[in-house]
């Protein structure tokens, strides 16, 4: 029982720690969007053609946050 309790404790702590990764992903997404905006304001005529790249970049940055969320979920529910 003691061991099980410790395991549960570790699970929840681990899940919480995994959520830190989402903060990193948030920074990444913000970085991508912010830099896109800075570039777009500097050269608005070129911005329209690059929105696809913007979304791809955001998707890649966001995927890593989703991975950390997934790790948290796995710890909570599947381990």
């Amino acid at each position: 029982m003691e061991i099980a309790a410790a395991a549960a404790l570790g699970k929840f702590i681990g899940a919480g720690l995994a959520c830190i990764g989402m903060g990193g992903s948030a920074m990444g997404v913000g970085n991508v969007a912010g830099n896109f905006l800075a570039g777009a304001l500097r050269n608005p005529s070129a911005a329209a053609g690059q929105t696809a790249t913007l979304f791809i970049g955001i998707a890649f940055a966001e995927a890593l946050g989703i991975f950390s969320f997934l790790v948290a979920l796995l710890l909570m529910f599947a381990v």
Partner: peptide, 16 residues
């Protein structure tokens, strides 16, 4: 892997 987990994870996360 990333292609599938991105979609599933996004949908799952928001709903959860």
């Amino acid at each position: 892997v990333s292609h599938s987990i991105r979609l599933a994870g996004n949908m799952m996360a928001g709903h959860a």
